[in-house]
């Protein structure tokens, strides 16, 4: 059975959920093999095994973390040339897509981005124009490369051997053009990553100011959710820009999306309308976001949200 290469994303040995999702999809196509860059493969191995990785190609050099995408793309290209896999799957994150982009040029392959599903025959389902159209597409040149949107599929466990196979691919100087000199962590607290979270609570202009975003954070924390924001809120400086949801922000597809004080402009909907369940709190019954709501409350968020937080607390006590 042909191999399917899955580029694993991890932080400090902890495998990201999206990687388990990719392994789940890869099993439909062929035999999943993970690619691991940097240290801590031993720590990540167990989780990769749990989701069916037959083996893990480990390139543990420090340079993979020290330069922007070049070394990772070079490693992938070398493995593609050597293993002739049926496909390569990467996470549909900005960086995942950039690695895919460089690999595509190196290997003369087509790339499909924003996939929300992939069949065993390598037909990818893509959600375009902010989720209003569903496209089925395939790659017809080179090795199919598919960037899969995080949270689009449910990871399913199936045991694999996850044999660690060290690979030694020398990284060229050309790949080391852009050096990362420092990583600056901005506070997020203990909340899950926005694009990976199964619950997202977002606030918009209705929240009214930076201080009252605390209310959104309280609701998020009561649900174990990530916090998002509309562009009106990030533009006003009430919440950091990297939390913006929408066409020019992040695309999220959580199990539950709670929109608070957000009107539902088409550009905001583009980032959230494939969420499984949508809850809306808005004082204007005419707000277009209600068209997407599975459950909506027409009311003042400063009354509704505190009560909701309190009720969740009671129910969980």
């Amino acid at each position: 059975m042909a191999e399917v290469l899955v580029f694993a994303e991890h932080t400090g040995g902890e495998v990201k959920k999206v990687t388990c999702e990719l392994l789940t999809l890869a099993r439909r196509i062929g035999e999943p093999a993970a690619i691991w860059t940097g240290p801590d493969a031993e720590a990540g191995r167990e989780r990769l095994a749990e989701f069916g990785a037959a083996r893990v190609y480990v390139a543990d050099g420090a340079e993979f973390d020290e330069y922007v995408t070049g070394p990772k793309a070079e490693l992938l290209a070398a493995l593609v040339a050597e293993k002739s896999p049926a496909a390569v799957l990467v996470a549909g994150t900005p960086e995942g897509k950039e690695i895919a982009a460089r690999l595509a040029v190196k290997s003369g392959s087509g790339v499909l981005t924003d996939a929300v599903d992939v069949t065993g025959e390598l037909v990818a389902e893509q959600s375009i124009f902010g989720g209003s159209i569903v496209v089925r597409a395939k790659v017809r040149a080179g090795t199919p490369i598919v960037a899969v949107r995080p949270n689009a599929v449910t990871p399913q466990a199936e045991v694999g051997a996850a044999e660690l196979v060290p690979v030694d691919v020398p990284v060229s100087d050309a790949a080391k053009g852009a050096k990362i000199t420092e990583r600056v962590m901005q506070e997020r607290g203990e909340r899950p990553e926005l694009t990976e979270a199964s619950v997202v609570v977002s606030g918009g202009r209705g929240v009214g100011g930076a201080e009252s975003f605390a209310l959104i954070e309280q609701l998020a924390d009561s649900l174990g959710a990530a916090v998002g924001a509309s562009r009106a809120a990030t533009d006003a400086g009430w919440y950091p820009h990297q939390f913006q949801v929408g066409q020019t922000g992040k695309t999220v597809a959580p199990q539950l999306y709670v929109a608070v004080g957000i009107s539902g402009a088409i550009q905001h909907r583009a980032g959230m309308q494939t969420s499984k369940t949508i809850m809306v709190i808005n004082k204007d019954p005419e707000a277009p976001i209600f068209e997407l709501a599975d459950f909506g409350v027409v009311g003042d968020l400063f009354k509704v949200v505190p009560q909701l937080v309190e009720q969740i607390g009671q129910r969980q006590a």
Binding site: A104, R136, I281, G296, V297, V298, K303
Partner: peptide, 28 residues
């Protein structure tokens, strides 16, 4: 092109949901 669209369709509209008006019990 290295990629090819096999088929496409408009996403079916979402089912209409339940909308309630806050009468002091919206959060609950």
């Amino acid at each position: 092109a290295a990629t090819e669209v096999v088929s496409w369709a408009q996403r079916p509209p979402r089912q209409a949901g339940t909308i309630v008006k806050d009468e002091g019990d919206g959060g609950a």
